[in-house]
Computed example of a mutant assay.
Amino acid sequence: MMKADYLEESLLRQLEERLLQPDVRKSAKDIIDLLADEFIEIGSSGRVFDKQQIIESLQNEPIEPLIQRSITEFKTLVLATGVILVIYRIVRHISGEQPVHSLRSSIWKLNNDRWKMIFHQGTLVRE
């Protein structure tokens, strides 16, 4: 297996960063556009969510302007033609608190010339 080419990797990073933006997270339309119908997420709590549950959860997520999230250690791995695994670390910064680290993995699938996330998992890291 090999790393995605630069353009694919760059685009997938942009899509992952887009999912961190509060205005995108609150927009059901944006989330519908980014997630495949068969999307599944395993949250850091161990709970499993489908696309509709994620949309509802994000609609109810409080907007916290003092929280900043940044992506580091971004890597890709081509699983098959049009299917790419993305692995990275998110550092969540909250003013006055210790940063919270989590390891993330997503699988993106090219569908009608558009990348859609079909799987995501987040695992908290004890730093």
Rank of each mutant, 00 (worst) to 15 (best):
L77T: 05
S106K: 01
E16S: 13
S106Y: 02
S44M: 07
I55L: 11
F74H: 04
G43C: 08
L19Y: 02
L19V: 03
L58D: 08
I71G: 08
K109R: 14
S105W: 02
R69P: 05
V86Q: 11
Y88M: 12
Q121H: 14
E8D: 15
V86L: 13
Q59I: 09
K109I: 00
L35Y: 08
S57L: 15
L77R: 07
D23G: 05
D5P: 04
R89T: 12
K75N: 15
K26S: 11
Q21T: 06
D23Q: 15
I31E: 01
L85W: 04
D113G: 01
A4E: 08
E61D: 12
Q68V: 13
L58M: 13
N111V: 00
Q14S: 13
R92Y: 02
T76P: 06
I94W: 02
E38S: 10
R126L: 15
I32D: 09
S95T: 15
N60A: 15
V125T: 12
I94E: 14
G46V: 04
E16D: 09
G46H: 06
T123H: 10
T123L: 09
T123Q: 07
T76H: 03
V125F: 12
I84A: 12
R18V: 03
F49D: 13
L11M: 14
S27N: 13
R18F: 15
Q59H: 05
K29R: 11
E56M: 07
E38H: 01
I40Q: 13
P65R: 05
E64F: 05
L19W: 01
K75S: 11
I118G: 00
I94M: 08
Q53I: 02
D5S: 10
F39Q: 00
T123M: 15
G96C: 07
F74T: 02
S10M: 08
I54Q: 12
K75A: 15
F49K: 02
